[in-house]
């Protein structure tokens, strides 16, 4: 069988699970959860350095960018200008051209503002960035992002941090079927089986943060997601059986006494 490699923006990843680094108790727990998840790519946010606390450790003291790909995001940005500013700073920090764009449109749902998102994608692509884009699960808009030069489409399963799981399997399937670039379900996954379902639909990967960090045992949950993603992918590659509406015996009737 051909080796199943996950390629995104020219990088080959061993794991189809990408994890976030927010909401953990401390950096040590973050690092342990990432290790348990087996992810080779993690998202990070860009924020002001706390100048009043010179001695406090920082995230990059715990994550080795040589071993793990850091994917800077624009979480918290509600317009194109802020998102572009954030990613240009991220690139300056260490040559990060691969970024995750999210331009939010509503504080309550954290739904993306797709008009600003598409416009920002075009600007970033022109500047040489490779852009993975958080988006709604609208197939038409996903196609527009692909046409704008996005490196991956990251439709939401449900609102960020909600844990509601995959709410619109049909739309996600339509996006998967039409896309020539990787489709990574981002946001809203609640538990490991949700990730399996997303992978069974044929997603190229999933991005998880809250479902791991907000679980009772984040390190164990990270391992659960690792296995769930592998299971879902294998199940997708194996191809599910046809659905029948009546029973069909599993044991042969020949030789029945």
């Amino acid at each position: 069988m051909k080796k199943d490699i996950f390629k995104v923006a020219g990088k080959s990843l061993k794991s189809r699970l990408i994890v976030g680094t927010g909401k953990y108790k401390n950096f040590s727990e973050t690092a342990k959860a990432i290790k348990a998840s087996g992810a080779d790519m993690v998202t990070v946010a860009v924020r002001r350095v706390n100048i009043l606390d010179k001695k406090k450790p920082i995230l990059t003291d715990y994550l080795n960018p040589k071993k793990i790909i850091l994917l800077p995001n624009t979480a918290g940005c509600f317009n194109s200008e802020d998102a572009l500013r954030t990613l240009r700073l991220a690139r300056e920090m260490g040559g990060w051209k691969l970024v995750k764009l999210e331009v939010l449109g509503d504080k309550k749902t954290l739904y993306p503002n797709m008009i600003e998102t598409i416009n920002s994608t075009k600007v970033l692509v022109k500047e040489g960035f490779k852009v993975m884009v958080y988006c709604t699960d609208d197939p038409l808009l996903a196609k527009k992002l692909e046409d704008a030069g996005a490196s991956a489409i990251m439709p939401l399963a449900s609102p960020i941090g909600s844990g509601l799981g995959l709410q619109n399997k049909v739309n996600i399937s339509l996006i998967i079927k039409q896309s020539k670039i990787p489709v990574i379900v981002d946001a809203g996954i609640g538990t490991a089986s949700d990730a399996t379902i997303a992978m069974e639909l044929g997603c190229d990967g999933v991005l998880i943060n809250s479902a791991i960090a907000n679980s009772k045992k984040p390190i164990l949950m990270a391992k659960a997601f690792k296995d769930a993603v592998v299971s879902g992918r294998n199940s997708f590659l194996a191809g599910r059986m046809k659905i029948n509406y009546f029973a069909s015996e599993s044991s042969p009737t020949k030789g029945l006494i």
């Binding site: 976030g20 680094t21 927010g22 909401k23 953990y24 950096f27 973050t30 998202t43 990070v44 946010a45 860009v46 924020r47 002001r48 350095v49 100048i51 920082i58 995230l59 990059t60 850091l70 800077p72 995001n73 979480a75 700073l89 991220a90 920090m93 960020i160 941090g161 946001a187 991005l207 943060n209 809250s210």
Partner: peptide, 10 residues
């Protein structure tokens, strides 16, 4: 002056 760095985020 703004000095920024990476912090935890999803």
């Amino acid at each position: 002056i703004e000095i920024v760095h990476f912090i935890g985020g999803g």
